[in-house]
């Protein structure tokens, strides 16, 4: 049965999370897998390594990354090659090769 009260919650509620303190570890989710990260930010190539550990660095450019649930000043968006984004506890990253058609 549908919970009427719950169904009234706006779909795009996205609780803003504070940026993590430098030096602390932070749990992020990459393609459904949890990872503990040290530091307050992460770069495109780091996420590619977490998602595809065996991949050669030369094909980093073939990877699209979207994130959500980040800190208030970078809550959601895209990350392209050589870009870095601040991270928050529980932030979700989707890392894929967007090449199929």
């Amino acid at each position: 049965m549908i919970d009427d009260k719950r169904s009234l919650v706006p779909l795009r509620v996205n609780p803003l999370r504070p940026a993590h303190d430098v030096g602390d570890t932070c749990e992020i989710i990459v393609n459904g897998q949890k990872h503990l990260i040290k530091g307050s930010s992460i770069e495109h190539c780091d996420l590619v390594r977490l998602a595809f550990p065996q991949m050669r660095a030369s094909i980093n450019s073939a990877v699209t990354i979207a994130f959500r649930g980040g800190p208030s000043h970078a809550a959601e968006g895209l990350l392209t090659v050589r870009q870095r984004t601040p991270i928050a506890q529980g932030e979700t990253f989707v890392v894929t090769h967007t090449v199929a058609s």
Binding site: F52, Q54, M55, R56, S58, I59, N60, S61, A62, T96, H97, V99, A100
Partner: peptide, 8 residues
């Protein structure tokens, strides 16, 4: 870049 083994 080139085709890669992770390509789905």
């Amino acid at each position: 870049g080139h085709d890669d083994p992770y390509q789905s």
